[in-house]
Design a protein around this nucleic acid. Structure first.
Length: 269
DNA sequence: CGTGTTTGACCGGCGC
DNA sequence: GCGCCGGTCAAACACG
């Protein structure tokens, strides 16, 4: 009799444990799906407004051009715009969050840069620093670094020209000069500061993990594409806002769940 | 002394 | 033509 009761208790314990782990798994999945949904709905809203804009333009075109010329179908216009967007030669911009107390204009990107000028521009009180690549004797690559107008802890690096040399400079054990920009050599793939680019946009833990996986590939071209994509997302206030809301909701949701767990006496991980 | 930074001067494009 | 402004040059300076 006693043995039977004990057996039942053990079976119940096992069931409770499996249910707890299942609950944990579902909670994690739910969290991920919620963030994904927010991202998707944000993109959908943006696309919808974009489509409306195109429709308006097409109506304008039809009313101003009613002499019988063939108007471009909406989808063709959209395809053409996408093509224009992707082929447009705009300078690459990356955003790097630095320590608030750090007032240097140093962006660690794996290349060796020599500063050749500094200017205060009209649109931004923070000075803009000009750098040239010093890894190769005649490398045409240049970059400009300036603090963000709205957030002084963010550095905006604008890249011009392409490097005419291949491999990135590996971190050197020797440190020739303390304050030199040339000492900023660590590869972007291993640089936590570079990863803060991702943190800027308020991405979910899942997205950050994905970002880290991508950034750990030792392929600079891929890194540049990721940075381009991330910086375009950062520049989109709608995306940032909806993500911030999603994260806030996730956090409040978790707090509520903790309350439920306390009431049910379920331990939180 | 070599290498990199700082900073005022200079140059060229652009708008009026 | 003129003035503004961003980008570059180069002499002076700093540092190890």
């Amino acid at each position: 009799m006693l043995v039977q009761v004990l057996n039942t208790a053990v079976i119940m314990d096992v069931k409770v444990e499996s249910l707890k782990s299942e609950l944990k798994r579902v909670r994690e999945e739910n969290k991920t799906l919620r963030v994904m949904f927010e991202v998707l709905s944000s993109k959908y809203t943006k696309l919808e407004s974009h489509l409306q804009e195109i429709n308006k333009e097409q109506h304008k075109g039809m009313s101003s051009n009613q002499t019988g010329s063939v108007t471009e179908p909406i989808l063709d216009v959209y395809k053409r715009r996408r093509l224009e967007f992707h082929t447009a030669k705009k300078p690459l911009q990356i955003f790097v969050r630095t320590h608030p107390m750090d007032d240097s204009l140093i962006v660690k990107d794996g290349y060796q840069w020599r500063k050749y000028g500094q200017k205060v521009t009209k649109d931004n009180a923070s000075p803009r620093a000009y750098f040239r690549c010093s890894m190769a004797p005649i490398c045409p690559a240049k970059k400009k670094v300036q603090r963000c107008l709205h957030d002084k802890s963010i550095l905006v690096a604008t890249y011009d020209g392409e490097h005419n040399h291949g491999a990135l400079h590996e971190p050197s054990s020797s440190t020739p000069r303390g304050s030199s920009v040339a000492n900023q050599l660590p590869s972007i793939a291993n640089d936590k500061e570079a990863m803060s680019i991702l943190a800027l946009s308020g991405l979910s833990q899942t997205d950050r993990r994905h970002g880290e996986e991508v950034m750990h590939q030792h392929d600079y071209d891929t890194n540049i594409k990721v940075e381009e994509y991330v910086s375009s997302l950062i520049k989109d206030p709608e995306f940032t806002m909806s993500l911030a809301e999603a994260v806030a909701r996730t956090i409040t949701g978790e707090l509520k769940q903790q309350d439920i767990n306390l009431n049910l006496n379920i331990p939180e991980e």
